[in-house]
Amino acid sequence: MIKARVTVTLKDGVLDPQGKAIEGALRALSFSGVGEVRQGKVFDIELDTADRARAQADLKDMCERLLANTVIEDYSIAIT
């Protein structure tokens, strides 16, 4: 079995009101030196295969077709 982690983040230049609110809350907790905060999503996915190339291709397809909205989001895939 292959385990993978897919990370989806907002593209540069796309406003992130939730990240902004979190940024403000971190400052409110008196953390100093907090710069921009961007919120994203993490998906841990198990794949019933030993074929890493096939897994990589499937995961890319999953990102393009469902996990990310490529109008506003980028994704990265890490197979462990």
Binding site: V14, L15, P17, Q18, A21, N69, V71, I72
Partner: peptide
């Protein structure tokens, strides 16, 4: 349709 709808700016 083109584009996307995101969280309201006011949250």
């Amino acid at each position: 349709l083109p584009g996307a709808l995101m969280r309201n700016a006011s949250l």
